[in-house]
């Protein structure tokens, strides 16, 4: 899997700070019930997502597909079946009212906001950097940080093993089994070797780490050191301005009138 890309200013933001801002923004978004305001700040995040992650626009659009789907599915449920007074359209169970339409859009934009924010974060943050920064800024125990990083290494290995097991099952005439019993059987035959392999591998990695004198003390040095810079101020400022300007614009120049 090749996900190399150019580095942008978003990569330079302190990862812990980035994570913190992201969590705060998600909580704030939960309390926004004004559609115009929600739309404005979603656009602000989409700008970061579309233009500042350093990934090609093709990959960005590809990654957006599932989130457009989330947007449509979350909002449409609310739009089609929600309750309201001003009726626009009715057909059987489906009734679209003005209130349900607006609330539907609000829920949809909120979902889009979470998705864009999360993707922007993960596209601009290497897991290794995140854990190093968490150890340094948030004082996460090295034990947890390094075990997460080691676990990330196991994922591609497991994917390869899964392919091998599939081929092996083909050889044994596995595909020919039918019915529920066979489904249960299949699940068992895939998961047991995969799990046992991973557990054994994880144990070996753990022993190898301790053989390299890994201990859970905090007085270790770091290959990557993370601090704060002007860019971090800029990052926070961006969102403060976004929240304020979004609020102002939603009142002065609402995109939709409610």
């Amino acid at each position: 899997m090749n996900v190399s890309n150019a580095e942008t200013w978003l990569h330079g933001i302190n990862p812990s700070l980035k994570l913190g801002v992201l969590i705060v923004l998600c909580i704030v978004a939960l309390f926004i019930h004004d559609l115009n305001y929600m739309m404005n700040i979603t656009i602000g995040v989409l700008i970061l997502f579309l233009f500042f992650t350093g990934h090609s626009i093709k990959r960005i659009l590809l990654l957006s597909i599932p989130f457009c789907f989330i947007f449509i599915s979350t909002s449409s449920a609310m739009i089609l079946f929600g309750q309201g007074e001003t009726l626009w359209f009715e057909w059987g169970l489906i009734s679209i009212t003005e209130e349900s339409f607006m609330r539907g859009l609000l829920v949809g934009f909120r979902a889009l906001f979470f998705a864009a924010l999360g993707l922007t974060f993960s596209l601009t943050t290497r897991p290794v950097n995140l854990f190093y920064s968490l150890m340094q800024q948030v004082k996460l125990k090295p034990k947890y940080a390094y075990s997460f990083m080691a676990a990330l290494r196991l994922i591609p290995i497991m994917m390869e093993e899964f392919q091998t097991i599939r081929n092996a099952m083909k050889v044994r005439g596995f595909e020919r089994g039918k019915g529920i019993r066979s489904v249960y059987f299949k699940m068992k035959s895939y998961s047991i070797p995969l799990l046992s392999g991973s557990i054994r591998r994880a144990h070996r990695i753990a022993v190898a780490m301790e053989a390299k004198r890994f201990t859970d003390t905090r007085d270790r040095t770091y290959y990557y050191e993370f601090g704060f810079s002007k860019m971090d101020h800029g990052f926070i400022l961006y969102f403060i301005i976004l929240l304020l300007a979004g609020f102002y614009l939603s009142i002065q120049f609402p995109l939709v009138s409610i």
Binding site: V128, A150, R153, R201, R204, I205, A208
Partner: peptide
């Protein structure tokens, strides 16, 4: 085992 003695990418 070359595959299970590293913890970093």
């Amino acid at each position: 085992d070359p595959d299970s003695q590293f913890c970093m990418p």
